[in-house]
Design a binder for these strands. Sequence first.
RNA 1: GCCGAUGUAGCUCAGUUGGCCAGAGCAGCUGAUUUGUAAUCAGCUGGCCGGGGGUUCGAAUCCCUCCAUCGGCUCCA
Length: 664
Amino acid sequence: VPLFFGIFAPNFSINITMINITLPDKSVKQVEKGTTAMDIAMSISEGLARNVLSAKVNGEVIDALRPINEDATLSLLTWNDDDGKATMWHSSAHLMAEAVEQLFPGVKFGIGPDIENGFYYDIDFGEYQVSDADFKKIEDRMLQLAREKQTFSRREVSKAEAIKYFTEKGDEYKLELIDELEDGEITFYESGTFTDLCRGPHLPNTGMIKAVKLLGIAGAYWRGDENRKMLTRIYGITFPKAKELTAFLEMMEEAKKRDHRKLGAELEIFTFSQKVGQGLPMWLPKGAELRERLEQFLKNVQKKMGYQQVITPHIGKVELYKTSGHYDKYGEDSFHPITTPVEGEEFFLKPMNCPHHCEIYSSMPKSYRDLPYRIAEFGTVYRYEQSGELHGLTRVRGFTQDDAHIFCTPDQLKEEFKSVMDIVMIIFRALDFNDFITQISLRDPDNTQKYIGSDENWEKAEKAIMEVAEERDLDAVIEYGEAAFYGPKMDFMVKDALGRKWQLGTIQVDYNLPDRFELEYVGSDNEKHRPVMIHRAPFGSMERFVAVLLEHCAGKFPLWLTPDQAIILPISEKYNIYAEKVLNLLKNSEIRALIDERSEKTGRKIRDAELKKIPYMLIVGEKEEKEGMVSVRKQGEGDIGTFTVEEFAKMVNEEIDRLLDVKI
RNA sequence: GCCGAUGUAGCUCAGUUGGCCAGAGCAGCUGAUUUGUAAUCAGCUGGCCGGGGGUUCGAAUCCCUCCAUCGGCUCCA
């Protein structure tokens, strides 16, 4: 019917069915059935129509050229909408596939979706050897095809027809995908010489793609399964304007400057050595001092919150990990045990601190009056990570967790969880971390038998976590089925300079280890009971935290944390003695400072201090010496005036107190 | 671990199709200069061209292999 409709519409106007389209501003347009989003855009303005990438009809994103056949709400999607961008990038994946297929005939295609920043396509290149040297060629062909303004034509096909097409083409990957689809829900999209199995939606035409950049090439296992064939994944991004591509590339360059690996070396925070081994960071003096300040800060908070510090060894007998259950799960895929030469006893480098802490718990009998029992340790652990996984300080083989374990009764769980969350918030605030994601991981409600612990306890814990998040006004993402088998958890995630997410703080409820270690306490009823355990690490690990912090503040650490808070710049060597005097006064006020005694010009000393991101520069010359003052320059801001050393010290300490204003 | 790329001085990079003792800027050291809010000048030091093996009259340049790094995949207690 729709086919005839178009042709004979004028003669049958009396039979035309009208539909109501509600636009985002709530206005309603009455149009003929079969009108497209593009038609409606055109009726509003031609300029708008030129920018429409796709449309959201009754909540579903569809092609702007697809007929609408019933009353609907409609939003026209442009580059300013995430869904619009997604359409552009998904179509770009097709465009790239078309270009690749023309340049490398016979290649086979896996999947090619849009992603957060662009798109990729997984391709089996067969005998071809492709590398980023081929990018130029592919990009040029893509632009050439884009200029042809190819349309994307959507076609519903039967399963048999779909199978026939890809059998003839010889693409087993598409056939596997089709196999999992129901007859009647299969659609093809055809653009230029390329036809793909695809749900859509797509752009009105490829001409809207004005700028193309292929970003990378990587192996990717078919369907994410490491036992299956590795396809070649090409990442790319496209834009409706060349200028946007330039801006994107500039942003990427900026992000690289924030890379913690670069900043960590420049600011002398940490280093790696091939001789020591990959993934084994070493903290340089400035980094070690900074880390100690972070640790001290947390220790102080924890002390106020009733934690006790403990210290445990770096190795533990194999039996310890058999009891904890970690041996069965990870024994093979971990660092292998070390053995004593005479007795042949086996020890593991500790991959976590909990088993040791459980043994501390049971070293003395506990009564309900001893709970909650909170023990903390900056525990260094070692984990085998596949070599390809290592990444700066964010993914290493040896790292220190700001670990603590809380043993409590099920009734105390909620209060304890809340106080742990408060610690996380205190830390995030002191470091000005406000852009983080909170994730709550709960049981899969349809599959509760795969979790250890009673339903009653799980429900209690899950309810407690949700309530705490709500009471503290946290906008948490809830993931069902993401809980560990031993308990629900809450994680805090932060993005790095390139937008990759890293998990930092974690709070986990555990019903498993108390069982395995047979932990007990005597209740008021004089009966033995099993405590609940909470694992928690507000920083996550010192290494990863400092890495994310470096990127977060682009190397400009908060004043209380930064290695050197001020540098004294004497105008000439004549004022070095006065500079020493200023330095001593600052030391008395617990301000970390140093003197640039080189015989350089002031401009040069300022430049170097600016590049080292030292927060305050104190310039001293004849005038300052005579008056007992310092001229203060703030990093990144410039001259802020002349002060006495005491005034300056007070100003700095007040600034620090504001940041560390911790109310417990 | 897998796919792809990279590896030249502390850092950023040059080194033409293999051919004289491997170069520059910054940093460092020495000296001169004594300086007022983002680079003073001069001289010098510094490299087994990631390690090992091979091809060649000759290798930083070509081949093999190992190591490390980078971007992904898979993993992540």
